[in-house]
Write a protein that binds this DNA or RNA. Structure first.
Lengths: 71, 71
DNA sequence: ACATTATGGAATATATATATTACATATAGT
DNA sequence: ACTATATGTAATATATATATTCCATAATGT
């Protein structure tokens, strides 16, 4: 599997909604740690979780996770 | 983790590019089986793989994987 | 100073995404 | 009928996403 680095703007979206990591994690049904690690780019979440996070933050997949690479 | 069913249009995007499952799998660096199972909705791919598939098919994440749920 | 909240980080355990290998079937070409 | 290609499916193995638990720290309020 190639090494695509993906920036994500989950933290921004979360703060915009006035949520803590704990609150978002409860809404998404995952642990606080999982949220923290996704925000800091150390986790490679599954599509299902990405979709849940998009729904909860009222953003699209592209908004949250779209590629920013220098091609 | 909630049970969000996600339709995906990966198969359509692949066929539009004139690719077989094998060819797409090679381009994406995964096995043919993985592609087949994602296309048939039986796999929950990781974000990295979704991003690779989007790049290879020249579609966005939303194009390929965005939610179609009856809310 | 103490308590509470929010976050980061690490160690271990569990669930699951993906690989590997193999076999089956349908279709198209010869 | 035979061969090759494309796809589906299943069993087992491996890698990794996520949970669980615990500790640390910074910020804020009392």
């Amino acid at each position: 599997m190639e090494d695509i680095t993906f920036e994500n703007s989950l933290r921004l979206a979360r703060v915009e909604k006035g949520l803590t990591q704990s609150e978002l994690s409860e809404l998404a049904g995952v642990t606080r740690q999982t949220i923290g690690l996704i925000e800091s780019g150390k986790y490679n979440p599954t599509l299902k979780l990405c979709l849940i996070l998009a729904r909860v933050t009222e953003k699209s997949l592209d908004d949250l996770f779209w590629i920013k690479e220098g091609e």
